[in-house]
């Protein structure tokens, strides 16, 4: 190694495993810590996944529980409730994605244009706040506002002589309310990444554009947006991986018997049928299914992003 370095310094040496390690061993050591943590907390649990092929009973353990092959999966896919939960999860998560992605981008663009720093900071803080509220609080406040006959909003609507709106008690209205509250909760927090992306755009570009006579809209359209395009795509790919997941808390607080048709999503299914009935194998099988679909979606999206000439995630 030393020889090649001294004798032919002009030629780029091929990095071998050994000298890469020798050169950057501190860095590898650093990455080792998080890697070990990930292995311990995520991969070490993988052998436990074999319970999806078992009728797992905690007291009997893995050794004592009965192997049932693919029975658990067969049962799940035949279950009408599972299909309903799957449909709802997919529809609502895609809607969440479609509505939830552009809003923070718009908001970030708007915030970026704010001139007066104090006002900008204040607006940002106010926008971030909902992110820190737990769903339990948001849910109970929402009910106080939107109850059909005693909710604040409906009382106002009725006082104006109109029919009350069943925001949370009729499934189609519920769907809209549920999605919009979701957007409201996440939009402020979502701007952080985009704002960070915008900061990294060189100021010279804007100056040059201004000299060329580009107005505010033109600058946004031709500089800011293209500048944060990689961020947008990365976040989109990451979010696609979550399309199968749903937030149990969010669903639980907005649930009531009249909207079950839409509210019944995979998280509820896992909780009620799996854990509620102590069917751990089933709960795990659905969880595994969710994750596998998530991985596939991420890989496909990444492939797609690359095919249209964008930098992917992987």
């Amino acid at each position: 190694m030393a020889k090649s370095k001294t004798s032919v310094p002009a030629v780029r040496t091929k990095t071998t495993w050994k000298n890469a390690l020798k050169r950057d061993w501190q860095l590898y050591l650093l990455i080792l810590v998080p890697l070990v943590l990930v292995f311990v907390f995520s991969y070490a649990a993988y052998p436990g996944l074999r319970m999806v092929f078992m009728n797992y009973k905690p007291a009997k353990g893995y050794a004592g529980s009965e192997w049932v092959g693919l029975d658990i999966f067969r049962k799940i896919f035949k279950d009408a409730d599972f299909l309903r939960a799957l449909r709802n999860s997919l529809v609502f998560n895609f809607l969440d994605l479609i509505i939830g992605t552009p809003v923070p981008i718009l908001l970030a663009l708007l915030l970026n244009e704010l001139r007066y720093p104090k006002f900008k900071k204040l607006s940002q803080t106010i926008l971030y706040l909902p992110h820190f509220l737990s769903w339990a609080i948001i849910g109970s406040v929402a009910y106080q506002l939107f109850k059909p006959s005693s909710g604040l909003i409906n009382v106002l609507i009725m006082n104006m002589g109109n029919e009350p709106v069943p925001f949370l008690t009729e499934k189609w209205h519920w769907a809209v309310t549920y999605l919009l509250i979701g957007v409201w909760q996440t939009m402020g927090w979502g701007t952080i990444m985009y704002l960070a992306g915008i900061t990294s755009i060189s100021g010279e570009l804007y100056e040059a554009a201004m000299i060329d006579g580009a107005g505010r809209w033109k600058r946004m359209w031709h500089i800011t947006l293209p500048g944060i395009k990689p961020t947008i795509i990365t976040l989109l790919i990451i979010n696609l991986g979550r399309v199968m997941n749903s937030n149990y808390e969010r669903l639980a607080v907005f649930g009531n018997s009249q909207v079950k048709d839409f509210q019944y999503q995979l998280a509820i299914y896992i909780y009620e049928k799996g854990l509620g009935n102590s069917q751990f194998s089933m709960a795990t099988a659905v969880g595994l299914f969710q994750s596998v679909i998530g991985v596939i979606l991420v890989l496909l999206a990444d492939r797609f992003a690359k095919s249209i000439g964008e930098e992917g995630l992987i």
Binding site: F41, A45, G48, G241, N245, Y248, G287, L288, Q290, G294
Partner: peptide, 17 residues
């Protein structure tokens, strides 16, 4: 890393809720 992240979600499902 991605796998681990998803696995994290997965293990979350195990006792989620």
């Amino acid at each position: 890393m991605t796998g681990a992240m998803l696995a994290g979600t997965l293990s979350g499902c195990g006792n989620g809720g």
